[in-house]
Design a protein around this nucleic acid. Sequence first.
RNA 1: AGCGAGGUAGGGUAGCAUGGAGUGCCCGCCGGGCUCAUAACCCGGAGAUCGGUGGUUCAAAUCCACCUCUCGCUACCA
Length: 482
Amino acid sequence: MFEFIMTDVVARHRKLNGSKVWVTTGSDENSLKNVRAAEAQKIPVGELCRRNADLFIALAKKVELSEFSFIRSSVKETHWKGPQKIWELCDKAGDIYKKKYSGMYCVACEQFYTDSELETGLCPVHKTKPELIEEENYFFRLSKYQKRIEEMFKNDEIMVFPQSKKNEMMGFVNQGLEDFSISRSKMRTKGWGVPVPGDESQYMYVWFDALCIYLTGVGFQYDEKKFKEWWPASMHVVGKDIIRFHLIYWPAMLMSAGLPLPKSVLIHGFITAGGEKMSKTVGNVVDPDELIAKYGIERVRYFFMKDIPTFEDGDYSEGAFKACVNNELVGNLGNFIHRTLTFAYTKFGGEIKSAPNESGISVLGEVGRRREEVNKLLWENNIHEAMLKILEIGNIANRYFQEMAPWELVKKDKEECEKVVSACLNMCMIIGDLLYPFVPESSERILGFIGMKPVPFGELGEMRSGFSVKEPKIVFEKIQEK
RNA sequence: AGCGAGGUAGGGUAGCAUGGAGUGCCCGCCGGGCUCAUAACCCGGAGAUCGGUGGUUCAAAUCCACCUCUCGCUACCA
């Protein structure tokens, strides 16, 4: 879910600023894990995958992913032609060959283990002695791309956010790239997965076909016109656990197939719950559906973008969630907006004609600088920092309101007071606008009170005079203790 | 073990490249103010041997060395 929100924030920001945006996502369903899970639940694999995918799609919709395509890799009709074509292209480039693979195989786990994974020569799960099994698989000539991948990193052909992950991968590359197996025997996969073209006995390695979701998601092999329009992707959003696939295997595959590389990869960390890794055994798994049902998507979006560092692990706890929403979203931003709008509405009947005075111009200058920083941070995909910057604006705005004390001023000098309120309304407008990628609904509501809509950065202008405020309602509600 | 990142008030962080009074931010805590606002907002305060030791320097969170602890990566698991 975190990834969905993050992607959506980026997507909305880009779209608002004039880019065409198409989001594609999917589920790689061809793994052995699914086969086993389905066996355990005694239902067909296809059924299990369909159920999971439905949950995912429903969640994505709740998170308000703007427009997206969802590819399920086990669905032949919309996906298989993609990876099979890539396979053929790689094969034509001479990068696929057959090789015997032998390894220690645990029958109970149904998987191979490397020496380092084995504990004193025994399977770490079953504590039994694994068998030495030999199997003939197809391999991808990754070693051939050693130089090209090094170059790719050096020249930033794919921008990596954050940089530190790029360094990590470069370290990996420097150890020397080895060819990797890209198929499994039919026996091992139990016939689940994408068949290798021209060899019935072999099925594709999950990642080989899963990565192709990025391609088929924009029409590759199914709608070439669409594909031309959307590929190469400007960004992939992935978790830190799978960067090797995205930053090494995937580019190499694309190079081999003669397709352009994606332009950037955004890597995020994991969410822990109450300081611990989420796991079913500990029982601290946070169900995103429940969270959204309980608190609403806007709050959830706000929390994850504000409290979780974009590129690192972050923690969720109910306490932190409430504090974050009540003290900042409500107390800082919500309060400022509400006190301003209410004041303008009750004291001036909503009609504010004056321009801000000098104090207002000065404070708007401060706000304006931060507004530019927010925009810059968003282009750098630094969502978390951008959100913090918006809160800073909220602070400035509240302080200004406090120091100017318009509630006093209105009794003494109404004209001067109107100028102050005008400055405050300008700040409401800026905050409302900046908030759009993060909490789109609320943003639209805020701007709606002053008869506006979210606009691209730069179109807002430096300052406005003349606002007509409708009767305001609370935008961000507090979470009440039950 | 190798490579990489990091250890800054109770918690979370910024600062480090180009050394200059422990400087900043968020949450929490304490005190005060305000009453337009959702018990919201504003101001002030307490709280830190900047992981440890040694070195360079007039001066080190910042540079160097060593130590210590934490966390990632080390491919055919996805």
